[in-house]
Design a binder for these strands. Structure first.
Length: 574
RNA sequence: CGGGCCGUAGCGCAGUCUGGUAGCGCGACUGGUUUGGGACCAGUAGGUCGGAGGUUCGAAUCCUCUCGGCCCGACCA
């Protein structure tokens, strides 16, 4: 490939709307061009990168027996109604919907559980045909509330999603393990530093799930991990061991104290000397939405700890929760914000508490009366016994649930997610096969996703320097470039073309930079584009001397033309 | 959707407060000189100042509405 024949348009300045390194660099190097918020054109060099990554994904999935298919992007509403997800996705505003000429409602697929389940249900009738595993690599559409960070969170993006269908749980466990192995090989091969973490299964539902996280400061997810035990989890899911709060001792008589304008835990610590946050229980009111009802609910948490809203949603089996508004709080508790508590809480407000409060005596809490708090509150004696759940947000520094050593925190970019769905969709959609006993049985499903356009961006978050991108070899647009510094000079043309041909013969993915531009500009351009190995044919071409650059680390050296092929292969690790 | 902010040439920006000839840098084009770190000289093209309405003798500038976009929060590959 001659670079003079590819449209390469690099910018000198970072685009104003880019925040993170990968977005700045990909836009500046002309790899992506925005056409609307979260919607991008992939230029030839970027498309080469995506195709290379997709090919790695295909090879590793095929190796585990998965089969690639092509699924429709336009999907009928009925399919989504049948799984029960139409309303939720439309209400959340995440679905692109449209009507055809007859007025039938359709959507652009944000994910493909429905289509795939319908396909397999139609084709698979017997346990003898199982297990099967299908995947696709295609555009997905989600009308993200806030598209951002270039390719990281687009509204149209490329995703691989795979779906496994098994006869029973054991089959699913095996399918899941295979996919996990394949995922590890995929991310190993493309040269990113990643961690597999326990994850919440969120809107997709199901039992177990793990996320593949590329560690990067710009990551939108927060993860906790332990070097000692290998425990790692998304904070949404993470658990921890906690140092015990000071003991409350024998139950003492309830006391009510006037606490005008004292509303926060910090203010209470100052107001009641000797009472530390660990002896307090804060009561936070949430507006909770279920499928067919909504209600304000009180949630108690130890004063020095925080509530994990994802755990709260799961504990309540709710669709969403949000903090109650000031008005909702007044209506539910009868008091101003800052004085909610379990004591005197109206019976129609459900009461939950975190495990950290289980068995704790003589608490300091609010009592639903503006300007008052209670001391020596004992749950079950002075108020209803709340229903105890694990609702606490784990934090760095707390003990690893496995080893007890302090947990560390990092930011991560979610590039892959694997789920054990179970029978959630197959039951909803009545997707069954005949088991050995001749009984219709729902498929036991798994689903598995990889962000195909996101992963290369994530790779750049880990591999760049002040000069530009530093592509890992496996997904670089080209492995090597042979650049002539002055295409008008015959000896440079001749030597560059000779080296180019030689490297092609050696199966190197090489391009020839024959563009007419000043040497300085060419150096800058190729540094920005980040081809891993760069060979410059310049003024010493007549003597058979060229320059050799390994982009990572910018080590530059001169060598004889005859050594080039060997040096390139060595630098590429072959 | 809530909170902050921005729309002026292909890109990055100034001009807006205080109304009066629409500017700068980069890029592009032509000619010439260059050819090892985004070259130099001379010249050229390119803008309904996001859109609509209003105030005014006069609006990029003031007012109203609207459409885009960005950033901070809740969703996700």
């Amino acid at each position: 490939m001659r670079l003079s024949q590819i449209l390469i348009s690099t910018l000198r300045d970072d685009p104003a709307d880019a925040e993170i390194p990968s977005h700045k660099l990909l836009a500046r190097a002309g790899f992506v061009v925005k056409i609307a918020a979260g919607v991008y054109t992939f230029a030839p060099l970027m498309w080469r990168v995506v195709k290379k990554f997709a090919q790695i994904v295909r090879e590793e999935l095929d190796r585990e027996g998965a089969n690639e298919v092509m699924l429709p992007i336009i999907q009928p509403k009925e399919l989504w109604v049948s799984s029960g997800r139409w309303d939720r996705y439309v209400t959340d505003g995440i679905m692109f919907t449209l009507k055809d000429r007859k007025g039938s409602e359709m959507c652009l697929g944000p994910t493909h559980e429905e289509v795939m389940t319908a396909y397999v249900n139609a084709q698979v009738n017997s346990y003898k045909q199982l297990p099967v595993n299908f995947y696709q690599i295609q555009d997905k559409f989600r009308d993200e509330i806030r598209p951002r960070f270039g390719l990281m969170r687009g509204r149209e993006f490329i995703m691989m999603d795979a779906y496994s269908f098994d006869a029973d749980q054991q089959g699913l466990d095996e399918a899941y393990a295979k996919m996990r192995r394949a995922y590890c090989r995929i991310f190993d091969r493309c040269g990113v530093d990643y961690t597999v973490v326990q994850a919440d299964s969120g809107a997709i539902g199901g039992a177990g799930s793990e996320e593949f996280m590329v560690i990067a400061d710009s990551g939108e997810d927060s993860i906790l991990f332990c070097r000692d035990s290998g425990y790692a989890a998304n904070v949404e899911k993470a658990q921890s061991r906690l140092p015990a709060a000071p003991a409350g001792g024998e139950a003492k008589p309830l006391e009510k104290h006037a606490t005008p304008d004292v509303k926060t835990v910090a203010q209470l610590e100052a107001f009641f000397p000797g009472w530390v946050a660990g002896r307090m229980a804060k009561t936070v009111l949430y507006h909770v939405t279920w499928k067919s009802k909504e209600k304000v609910t009180a949630v108690m948490m130890r004063g020095d700890l925080e509530i994990n809203e994802v755990k709260l949603v799961n504990a309540l089996d709710a669709l969403t929760v949000r903090l109650a508004t000031e008005d909702e709080i007044k209506k539910a508790t009868g008091a101003e914000v800052g004085f909610a508590g379990p004591v005197g809480l109206p019976d129609d407000v459900p009461l939950l508490a975190d495990e950290s409060l289980h068995g704790v005596t003589n608490l300091l809490t609010g009592c639903n009366q503006t300007g008052y708090h209670c001391l020596n509150v004992n749950l079950g004696r002075d108020c209803r016994m709340p229903s105890f759940k694990e609702l606490r947000l784990a934090r760095a520094g707390e003990g690893c649930p496995v080893s007890g050593k302090p947990l560390e925190q990092a930011r991560g970019i979610e590039v892959g997610h694997i789920f054990k769905l179970g029978t959630k969709y197959s039951k909803a959609m009545a997707a069954t096969f005949m088991d050995q006993g001749g009984k219709p049985t729902p498929f036991v499903m798994g689903c598995y996703g990889i962000g195909v356009s996101r992963t290369p961006a994530a790779a750049i978050e880990q591999h760049f320097d002040d000069k530009g991108m530093v592509w890992p070899v496996a997904i670089a647009p080209f492995e090597c470039v042979v650049a002539m510094l002055d295409p008008k000079r015959d000896e440079q043309q001749a030597l560059a073309q000779q080296l180019y041909a030689q490297l092609q013969k050696a199966s190197v993915d090489v391009c020839l930079d024959d563009r007419a531009m000043s040497p300085g500009a060419k150096f800058k351009d190729l540094e920005l584009i980040g081809v891993p190995v760069q060979v410059f044919v310049g003024r010493k071409a007549g003597e058979g001397q060229v320059e050799f650059l390994v982009r990572k680390g910018m080590q530059k050296s001169e060598c004889q033309a005859g050594e080039v092929a060997a040096k390139v292969l060595a630098a590429l690790g072959r």
